[in-house]
């Protein structure tokens, strides 16, 4: 028989870090629980304590500050969809819009999506494009890690058992930029990504060439990652369909997808370059649209 789990609903930050300090890996943090409860039911987790943090004050806001936009640990996908600050960031907002249904978006958190560390985590590519930093706290200390150093592997992060991820910060968005998120799934919603791509282009308005390029891909390797070969190909060039297609092909470098029930490796490899090219094309369109509005 499954050993009974204790549920502790914390109401203060101190309560959480104290409990983590005491329990370490015996505690499983839970916010909306949309991943945790399923894993628990499948027997993939067997913590002693579910440490519930939804009531902890101060973790549920999107706030602009020095260093960029801060998303607290309890910021949900629904908030990312609706908050004006995040709404403007297509690589994030479009990803949040496509995480499960409303039932998941209403209580599922961005930080939860990152900490769960699924290779198909929908928010991770968009956050990588935005140089996200992850803030961790434990009793008496804090630290901050770049997202690409935080996610270490499939279901594996740099979080120590005593640490709470309190939020993430994304860097200020440069001017003349456009971004996009492309998710590949069989249906138009409720899909675990088969391939996910987030891109951001900055186009120098004086030269019309790409000043900065970010390409991040998910579900094609154990860890969502940036695609430097694609990015290098883009920088300094004029945005064209051929260039985007070439950058798409370059994204295959570092991609090592698996065969699973959702899609074959062969399909993922076929679709990745096309999805990258499409995301780049949309990003470029967004730059143009922003320019024409300005």
């Amino acid at each position: 028989m499954q050993s009974p789990v204790r549920f502790h609903s914390a109401t203060t930050f101190e309560e959480v870090v104290d409990a983590l300090d005491e329990l370490g890996s015996e505690a499983r943090l839970i916010a909306g629980g949309t991943d945790v409860m399923i894993q628990l039911a499948r027997g993939e987790l067997s913590p002693q304590v579910l440490l519930h943090i939804e009531r902890v004050p101060g973790l549920g806001t999107v706030a602009a500050g020095e260093g960029g936009l801060h998303l607290g640990a309890l910021v949900t996908h629904a908030m990312v969809r609706s908050d004006p600050a995040t709404c403007a960031l297509a690589a994030l907002a479009d990803a949040a819009r496509q995480v499960g249904g409303w039932q998941t978006q209403a209580i599922g958190t961005v930080v939860g999506n990152i900490v769960n560390a699924s290779p198909a985590a929908d928010l991770t590519p968009g956050l990588l494009v935005h140089d996200a930093m992850v803030h961790l706290s434990r009793r008496g200390s804090e630290r901050t890690l770049p997202l690409d150093q935080f996610v270490k592997g499939r279901r594996e992060t740099a979080r120590e058992p005593q640490e709470l991820v309190t939020g993430i910060t994304i860097a200020p968005t440069p001017e003349h930029s456009g971004e996009a998120f492309v998710k590949v799934g069989r249906r138009k919603a409720m899909e675990v990504s088969i391939v996910a791509v987030a891109t951001r282009l900055v186009v120098d308005p004086s030269t019309g060439t790409i000043a900065d390029a970010r390409v991040a891909v998910g579900a094609v390797s154990p860890i969502p990652h940036r695609a430097p070969a694609s990015e290098q190909l883009l920088i300094g060039q004029r945005p064209t369909a051929d260039l985007f297609a070439a950058a798409g092909r370059a994204a295959l470098e570092g991609a090592d997808p698996i065969d699973d029930v959702r899609a074959s490796r062969r399909y993922r490899l076929a679709v990745l370059p096309r999805a990258v090219a499409q995301a780049l094309s949309r990003s470029s369109d967004h730059v143009d649209a922003a320019r024409s509005v300005a």
């Binding site: 069989r186 249906r187 138009k188 919603a189 409720m190 899909e191 675990v192 029930v261 959702r262």
Partner: peptide, 27 residues
């Protein structure tokens, strides 16, 4: 949408409503 494949081992491949995709309102 709805693949229900049978593997060479005679087991069903799709075994949940996550992998056995039923069409949604948007589809």
């Amino acid at each position: 949408y709805e693949s229900q494949r049978i593997g060479d081992d005679a087991r069903l491949v799709e075994r949940s409503l996550e992998s056995y995709r039923l069409p949604l309102a948007v589809d």
